[in-house]
C-alpha cells in the first residue's frame, strides 16, 4: 500500500481531485457506453418482435383498407 490512511488515499497529496475526476469520468462513460449498448440490443429485438407480430396479424385477417375516401364537391368561388 502506497498510502498511510484512507484520507491520504483520497487526498493523494493534493492531486486527488484530478485523479478522481479522471477515474470518475472514465467509469461513468465506459459503464454508460456498456449499458447503452446493451439497452440498444434489447430495444432492437423488441422492435423486431413487434414487427413480426404485426405481420402475423396482417396475414390472418384479410387486408382491410386503412382509410376510405369520399368525393366532396367544393365550390371554387
Amino acid at each position: 500500500m502506497a498510502f498511510e490512511s484512507l484520507s491520504a488515499f483520497i487526498a493523494m497529496e493534493g492531486h486527488g481531485p484530478y485523479v478522481w475526476t479522471c477515474y470518475g469520468v472514465f467509469v461513468v462513460l465506459l459503464a454508460g457506453l456498456m449499458l447503452w449498448s446493451q439497452r440498444r440490443r434489447r430495444t432492437t429485438m423488441e422492435a423486431c418482435r413487434r414487427n413480426y407480430e404485426r405481420e402475423a396479424q396482417g396475414q390472418q385477417r384479410t387486408a382491410r383498407p386503412a382509410a376510405t375516401f369520399t368525393r366532396v364537391e367544393v365550390s371554387q368561388d
Binding site: 502506497a2 498510502f3 493523494m12 485523479v19
Partner: peptide
Amino acid sequence: GLAFAPKDYLQGNS
C-alpha cells in the same frame, strides 16, 4: 495502480 503502485518521484500522485 491507484493504491499500491509507488509514487512517481517527479509528478507525485497525479
